[in-house]
Amino acid sequence: MTAVSEAATSSALRTREATVRRFAVTDMVFRTATRLSAILVLVLLGGVAISLVAGSWEALSKFGFSFLTTESWNPVTENFGALAPIYGTIVTSAIAILIAVPIGIGIAIFLTELCPRPLRRPIGIAVELLAGIPSIIYGIWGLFVFAPFLQTTVQPFIISLFHGIPGLSSLFAGPPYGIGLLTSSLILAIMVLPFITSITKDVFDTVPAVLKESAYGIGCTTWEVTRRVTIPYTRIGIMGGVMLGLGRALGETMAVTFVIGNAHRISASLFAPGTTISATIANEFTEADGNLYTSSLVSLGLILFIITFIILALARYMLLRIDSRTGA
C-alpha cells in the first residue's frame, strides 16, 4: 500500500522535476534570444560606424584634413572636397530651424492653451500626420508646385525689394531659379515642424497644473503664464525637441535632392542652387565611377553620421533630463 503510493509520488516528482527543468531551459533560450536581439541593436550602430570609416578610408587618407576645407568637387580630375555640401547642409538646416521653431512652439501653445477641447485631438493628429508623409512626397510637391510658385511670384518680388540694399541684395541675388538653398530650407521647415510641435506639446503637458494655476491666480495673462512659467519650466525639453528636428533636417535626403539644384559651389545668394551632404550622395552615388569617387561620397556620409550622432545624442540627453524630472 505504502510502496505503491511511494512509487507514484516519486514518478510524479520525476515528471515534476522534468517539467521544471524544461521550463528552465526554454526560459533560458528565450531570455538569451531577447538579450542577443538587444545587443544586435548596439551591433547595428557599431557596424554602421565601422563600415563608414572603412569605406571612407581611401579618400580620407588621400585628402586628409583638407577634405573638409576644399570647395572643389571634380570627378574628372578626382579632386574632392566637402566644403560646399557641408555649407549647404548647415545653412539649409539652420534656416529651416529658425522658421520652424517659432511656428512649432506657437502651434504647441495653441494646442495646450487656446484650442477648444474637442478640436485638440484632431488638430494634433493632423499636425502629426505631416510627420508621416514620406519625404519624397515633399520633394515632388516642392519641385512641381512650390518651386515654380516661388520662382514666378515670391522670388522676383524679394529680389526687387532688396535691390540696392548692401548685404541683403547679395543675400537675395537673382536670377530666380525657383530651386535652391532657400526653397530647400522652406521645405525642410515644413518637414521638421511636426516633430518640434509634437515634442513641445508633450513637454508643455508635463508642467504641473498647480504652477500654472498659481500664476493665473495672481492675475497673469495666458501669454505671461506661457512666457514666465511654461517655457522656463520646459526649456530643456524644448531644446531637445529642437535638436531632434535639427537632426532630421541635417539628414533629410529626398525632399532636398529634388529642390536644391545639386551645384557644388558656395554662393552668397540664398536663391542660388547649392547642395547638401545627403543630396550629393543620393544624386551621385550610383553614377560614381572609380574607387576614390565612391570613397569620397562615403566620407561625406561619415561626416553626416558624426554630425547627426552628436546632435541626436544631445537631443536625447536633454529629453531624458526632462523625463527624469517628471518621474521624480
Binding site: 547595428l44 539628414g251 533629410e252 552615388f285 553626416l304 541626436l312 536625447r316
Partner: peptide, 20 residues
Amino acid sequence: FINDILLSAPSIIIGLFVYE
C-alpha cells in the same frame, strides 16, 4: 539610448551601410 539615435538617424546612412 542607441536605439533612439538609430530611430532618427538619416536613412541614407543606412543605405551606405548596407551598400558596404
